[in-house]
Design a protein around this nucleic acid. Structure first.
Lengths: 342, 342
DNA sequence: TTGTATGCGTTATCAA
DNA sequence: TTGATAACGCATACAA
């Protein structure tokens, strides 16, 4: 039994009676080679089941054809659609996608930048909102890095974002439009830029409508269901009790609704709730959640295209790309009880 | 300004006045080298910021230190925890994790096997339940492949599974224990092994309890929310109406509950519902879903450890590894109305 | 304990 | 249109 050895360029060259360079060129579609030769070599390569050794090629060309997608928590379903968008575009361009999970660990953040500069990947899509200081200071031009979803200050790379502040304004205006005046807010973790901007949008919209924000109408969560429940308990004890809550993400919004039911309040009859993100589950929830939809697939696709441009030395957009959000009106928002009005 | 060129082994060797092999050995912790030499070289490497060229090393050693994790639909939140488990173990062993998404496309399934044999990854965790026939027949020993979650027939590789049939029996027994006798089932897509086994468990448990399965008590969905709603409409029109439904996954279960509410039935007062998977949102759902928990993190971790064994030529377990499931009793199951009893 | 020499498979340069 | 040859950076068998 002969060992089924994988043929390499040299083997094919020998069979074809030409040099390895000729085979290499023929198979990579160089126009320099006579068509007849190309056909002959192609046939032979097929016959012997030749497949190029990718590691050798990577080494020689100093490329990997892989990109890194770095997130804070790979267990967060929010990223799924983004992954999908990235993967789709990457795949089309012949790139594979490497998962990287920092779990908010600075060392791991640095480690992934090292992976990049070590050539384990050709590019990187960063969705952590944080760039370790050592990395930020180290090199001026960070090649082949795109930031998505979370603005990173002092870091001059292309960014794919949404306008968190404007989206928050839209959310609050929706509540105001329904007749609510006592509107509370549950923010995400501060000082994360995303949370700050959503909170700012809330304040702006309230101010623009001439509405007060009483003490106790602002609570800070950490994007988890539990923190949503906790904040809801606090807010629903405030005087006067809010008739609506704008929550900085969907998961916390679910917690709010759970808690409201526990307190005997019904949603949206007694309390309107609006979330942010439009994760897959928001529509399935009972009642289905009114929320702000982020174009997550688009974000992924766009981030990857910009990264491709970057890697191909095309000039990327100088300004951040801002993608539009959309208000999804569902079952958790309605006009307030007349009795609850001032 | 001198270009900040990345030093290689040769550069360090020159600075240290030794040969490249000495440097190579010193940095890779070979015990052959004098300690003083090692220290000197380490210091020098640090000073000049030497980092090994990973592509060169991969090429030389014919390894990639990356593994492929292949799923049907990367947008399915079910896989998240499994990813996390895989990633955790992989990372600890110095491997990175490549995402692969087949979207049920045979060509892509084959393509990922080719990636593996092309050396773009050193190993593979397969969670698609399907192995293309061409691959199955091609080579007898498929090195460095582990199957997780879905049994694959005629494919002799280590498998990490749960006992779907036994878990389904547990679920149905829970309903029976509450006093239900009219229990319907919504199956997943057939002929997927997973769906078949869950359905079989349902039938077995019913039979063991001497309960009939009337015509119209079985409906086939496709694991989506919508199919859950559709099946619920059908089942809830059956005569006599079932008082409980065992649903083959959580997402369809959410659809069932939504539909029940639309028909004016309340859960669990009028209808008990039990799901399967215990995805993250099952607990957040209102009412929170009674379901079967799969040890997804464990599955990921175990799959990756077995893969590591495989890649290090340790002998993997000959038999499939069966991990235990757990019944999570929550709010969607209760005793049936006395009026609804026979 | 260290050095020398070789090769991994490919692509790129130069010459024919 | 093709061939000979030289890298790419590292790890290792063998020699010393």
């Amino acid at each position: 039994m002969s060992a089924p050895v994988r043929p390499n360029l040299k083997d094919i060259a020998q069979r074809a009676g030409v040099s390895t360079s000729t085979v290499s060129r023929a198979l990579s579609g160089s126009s320099l080679i006579a068509e007849a030769t190309v056909d002959r070599i192609r046939a032979l390569a097929d016959e012997y089941g030749y497949r190029p050794n990718v590691r050798a090629r990577n080494f020689r060309t100093q490329k990997t054809m892989a990109v890194l997608i770095v997130v804070r928590d790979i267990g967060n379903p929010f990223y799924l659609e983004v992954f999908k968008g990235v993967e789709r575009v990457a795949r089309q361009a012949g790139y594979s996608v490497l998962m990287a999970n920092t779990e908010n660990d600075k060392e791991r953040e640095v480690a992934y930048f090292e992976m990049l500069s070590d050539g384990l990947a050709d590019g990187m899509i960063l969705m952590t909102g944080a760039v370790p200081k050592s990395v930020r200071d180290h090199r001026p031009g960070h090649d082949n890095v795109v930031v998505a979803l979370e603005m990173v200050e002092d870091f001059n790379v292309p960014q794919i974002l949404i306008d968190n502040e404007a989206a928050a304004v839209t959310a609050v205006e929706h509540l105001i439009g329904l007749g609510h005046t006592r509107i509370a807010h549950i923010a995400g973790p501060i000082p994360e830029g995303m949370s700050i901007r959503r909170q700012k949008g809330y304040c702006l919209a309230m101010q623009a409508a001439g509405l007060e924000i009483p003490a106790g109408y602002l609570c800070r969560g950490d994007f988890t269901l539990q923190s949503g429940e906790r904040c809801a308990r606090a807010l629903l004890n405030a005087e006067p009790r809010p008739t609506a809550i704008f929550v900085a993400n969907d998961e916390m919004a679910f917690g709010v609704i759970r808690q409201a039911y526990q307190l005997g309040l019904s949603v949206p009859a007694d309390l309107s709730v609006i979330g942010f993100d439009n994760i897959a589950f928001s529509e399935a929830f009972l009642p289905s959640l009114t929320t702000i939809s982020q174009p997550r697939l688009d974000i992924g696709e766009r981030a990857m295209s910009v990264l491709l441009d970057l890697m191909n030395d095309k000039t990327p957009p100088a300004d951040p790309t801002i993608l539009p959000t959309q208000l999804m009106v569902r079952e958790t928002t309605a006009a307030p009880h007349p009795a609850a009005q001032d």
